[in-house]
Write a protein that binds this DNA or RNA. Structure first.
Lengths: 233, 233
DNA sequence: TACATTAATATGTAGCTACATATTATTGTC
DNA sequence: GACAATAATATGTAGCTACATATTAATGTA
């Protein structure tokens, strides 16, 4: 019963997960309190707590103060995506990275961008359209809006040499990032920029970031046909 | 200096992040040890540890035993995707969910599926092709392979009533999940099943799961035109 | 009964100690 | 100098206590 061996929170977590898996506790059931589990396993409450926190983060259980811990009724598949700087992504594949600034201008934020940020009124932004290349072939085209109130320094960056992607990622950590992924057919404009065929299916990543409540950047990145996004192993 | 107020690990984390942000510590720099930070902030090492663990998980710093903590040289945008059971996704949008089994048969795993699982030789699998509907319109088509050695019970499940997606998610937690996302043009076969136009761009999610080293399922889910995948707020 | 106040309770967090573990640095030996 | 054994060191984990916080349950009062 009261074995003295140290129990790792990982093994406790796996034990509890196993119980949920083999229906000792089913979806919607309330689990025993942490203390109860601790007594049962012969470990400290903090160890059970850590195990539970992990199970909660992975989406298997749901915890609420006083309410206790419940097995989630609707489990989710939770995956972590790593989106690196485009240059590094290209170089990691063994290709030579290239970058090309297409257009850059100060504009009031468009309605779509305001919606992304949840802004009630337009703000002055720097709009940057640029193309990332892999081995001199179009890789990702990005249409980016940068909030000038939050990132005034961007106006003094030479965006013909360094991509806004890289400068921002290195200089402006964000506290919140929204991501939207979808597919859309290539337009004639895409075909021109990405050198794709008009009928191609393009992978689109829209990304919006904030620091606190202040908007940083919102961008629409369109990848070349054949692009794939992976989760990290 | 030595203020007695309690410091939350969140505020410690934000302070350290702030320092990295304002270039007190730049990319590639080594940060002070946890104890040093603890003394500086006037808090316990465990609090700094928790803050650091969070920064490491978010991809801003990298930690190694004895090696200490370093600011990552190549920051990544890290996002968490929640992929719910398709039925719940549909219902959450206020639509009526429908499900239709198209085909089901026992087959040896195809080379593509073996590659997904990293299997050296073929194994017997149950291949299930099914269509998820929202308001009687095609929503997601899935072509799924289920490993019969790992999940023998699946043969006794009536897949005309319950989707394999739902049964597996409720009965077979996984320990590892690989995800691959991309866009591809709709084929004539897609057009028929998803009632899409031949030129449409389709969003594809490939998902492969294991329990331990044992393969569970590998599937290719093709969404209707216009489908979008979000990160959770 | 309706509603505000209070108590009870389970999880969340901060701080401490002790030890485990991985990795680097040092030292010893040939 | 090459290489193995050893020491030093920073992070990782387990266990404990005490208190914070959110939420439900119970109680009191108009």
């Amino acid at each position: 019963m009261t074995d003295k061996q140290r129990h790792s929170w990982v093994s406790i977590r796996d034990s509890i997960r196993e119980m949920i898996l083999n229906s000792t506790y089913g979806p919607g059931d309330k689990l025993p309190r942490d203390e109860e589990f601790a007594a049962r396993f012969g470990c400290a409450r903090s160890t059970v707590h850590r195990a539970m926190r992990d199970l909660a983060q992975s989406g298997l259980v749901e915890r609420r103060r006083k309410g206790g811990t419940m097995v989630r009724r609707d489990p989710v598949t939770r995956a972590t995506l790593d989106i690196p700087i485009t240059r590094l992504e290209v170089e990691q594949k063994g290709s030579t990275y290239g970058y090309q600034l297409i257009r850059q201008s100060v504009q009031p934020s468009s309605p779509a961008i305001m919606a992304n940020f949840g802004l009630p009124e337009a703000r002055p932004m720097l709009r940057v359209e640029a193309l990332h290349l892999a081995d001199s072939r179009p890789y990702i085209f990005e249409d980016r809006w940068i909030c000038l109130e939050t990132v005034p320094e961007i106006t003094s960056v030479d965006l013909t040499r360094e991509s806004a992607n890289e400068w921002l990622v290195r200089n402006r950590p964000y506290s919140r990032c929204d991501l939207r992924l979808y597919a859309r057919p290539g337009t004639p404009s895409d075909s021109e920029i990405l050198q794709s065929s008009p009928g191609d299916a393009l992978f689109v990543m829209e990304r919006t970031t904030w620091i606190g409540d202040a908007p940083i950047t919102s961008l629409c990145a369109v990848a070349h046909p054949g692009y794939q996004l992976f989760t990290r192993g």
